[in-house]
């Protein structure tokens, strides 16, 4: 298994990433069209499998890209790996700080927002990683 993963280059990562993003967000736009054409009551039968299939494809695509980029960085340039690891460290710490802060704020002031905490944290983690990578890159330039 380790050798298979080592030799497999995870091709077409960029295209799969774009396709996964489209699969993730497409139902939101298609929903309006489906409701408009068949009505709100009958739309459930169409939208449920549509959401299931598209989110499953997006999920598989994102997992493929995550593993692909992970192996690409691991086998690539060592400075880039160090920048990646330090950025991950910054992203993880930031997310953890925001997790506790948001739990406190949402529990006390907006309990319904707790439903969205994972989405908010995911966005925070991505932003922290990108900003962290820029900050770390400057250190080594």
């Amino acid at each position: 298994m380790k050798n298979i993963l080592k030799n497999f280059s995870f091709p077409h990562k960029g295209k799969i990433l774009i396709a996964s993003t489209i699969f993730l967000f497409a139902p939101m736009f298609l929903l309006q069209i489906i409701i408009a054409s068949v009505g709100l009551e009958k739309s459930g039968a169409i939208t449920r499998p549509l959401f299931l299939v598209s989110s499953l494809l997006a999920c598989v695509g994102f997992i493929y890209c995550s593993i692909g980029y992970h192996f690409q960085i691991m086998q690539g340039d060592e400075l880039k790996l160090k920048i990646h690891l330090e950025s991950l460290n910054i992203a993880f710490t930031t997310t953890l700080v925001f997790l506790f802060a948001l739990i406190f704020v949402f529990l006390n002031f907006a309990p319904t927002m707790l439903n969205y905490i994972l989405v908010i944290l995911a966005v925070i983690a991505i932003i922290a990683y990108v900003l962290g990578a820029e900050f770390v890159k400057e250190k080594y330039e």
Partner: peptide, 17 residues
């Protein structure tokens, strides 16, 4: 490795493995 890695090592910003 990348040219950036060599540059960072020469400028003593990064210690190589």
């Amino acid at each position: 490795v990348s040219r950036q890695t060599i540059n960072a090592i020469e400028r003593e910003k990064y210690d190589p493995s």
